[in-house]
Design a protein around this nucleic acid. Structure first.
Lengths: 191, 191
DNA sequence: ACGACTGTTCAAGAAAATTTGAACAAACTG
DNA sequence: CAGTTTGTTCAAATTTTCTTGAACAGTCGT
């Protein structure tokens, strides 16, 4: 009890001894997530919550990570939208409390589902559209140009095929089914 | 012959009819690669080369993509370092010619091997170091704080375990072996 | 309903990255 | 061996992205 009370009161001097370790882990995951196309702070916030036995307030988070409250609000909101963090309430308390979604696996699945699949689909669409343009242009071309265009079409359809195999693999991942990367390999077998 | 000669001479007006389709596909892959943490232009350059039946010069590339020669040099150099593009030479010609590595699968493998594995390893190291700090700090703590630290240690070791499973999965991908994503799932089974 | 306390949004400022032109270096030609 | 062409590097300038403080909005207790 005394510790919990003290933790809330202490402004920012006399940090707990474990703070450094906490930040180190948070930064490591922050880099990982940044690399993965998310805000760095999203990873840092999630980690701090993940390492905390109880939900935390935005004030505690901004104090721990030395972030402005607006930055916390922004990244935390995005984490909530991704389902990586949940809002919880405390009986009497007025503030919002936040806790981490603990299943990393669940999180990965959600991201692949929502984001990677979209990304691939957009690429597939772009390839299809490019193909259509080539076919439309083909009639008016001379033999030399026609050979050129046919080469492009062959290559484009290979890119399409690869993308579709990739899409299927991601779907299997999302479904938690085993996958075989050599499917990709065989998608570009014939040269 | 006449076409090939004309292509080299034409400055930038009267673009070939297929140019638009080419750029569309290039941009699609550019976005994909950007999302994957590479320069957008790397994807665009690779695609243009991939869609070309013969190797191209830097001049042709910068003309096609409307890029300055320095930008071409920079991104092309990086592509060469990644093995995504090869330099080739032509009998009489003075300029360098470039051609795309055609096996996307090979490229993916190389990137995972060189980049993702490193990334994961750094995270694993960070977790280990954070663990060590916690253990070092533990002796001087009261019972309340000790419980807090023990919670963190449990969580950190779970992150470590997850990372290591992830590392193993990536290694299997690189080796072209089938993988089972539920391994990740089971790495965080016990709560 | 008012006042105090939280959380969010926004626009200005700071920081980081990309882009480019020019200077430099290297390689081939006559 | 000069002169020309090609490729790379660098620093300045632009663009983009991040960050922040302040204004705004919402909620709860009195």
């Amino acid at each position: 009890m005394s510790t919990a009370a003290a933790k809330q009161e202490e402004p920012n001097d006399s940090q707990p001894l474990w703070r450094e370790a906490e930040l180190q882990a948070a930064d490591a995951i922050g880099r990982l997530m940044e690399f993965w196309g998310f805000r760095r702070h999203m990873g840092r916030l999630w980690t701090v919550l993940y390492l905390s036995p109880e939900p935390m307030t935005t004030a505690e988070l901004s104090d721990t990570l030395r972030l402005s409250s607006s930055a916390v609000s922004l990244s935390l909101g995005e984490l909530v939208r991704w389902g990586a963090v949940r809002k919880t309430w405390r009986p009497g308390e007025r503030k919002d409390f936040y806790e981490a979604e603990n299943s990393v696996w669940k999180l990965l699945r959600r991201v692949y589902e929502r984001r990677e699949l979209n990304l691939i689909k957009e690429a597939v669409d772009a390839f299809a559209e490019a193909q259509a343009r080539l076919e439309a242009a083909r009639p008016g071309l001379g033999p030399e140009e026609r050979r050129r265009v046919d080469f492009m079409r062959k290559r484009l359809s290979r890119l399409s095929a690869l993308s579709k195999v990739g899409e299927r693999l991601v779907r299997l991942i999302v479904a938690g089914r085993p996958i075989n990367p050599t499917d990709l390999q065989s998608a570009e077998e014939e040269d």
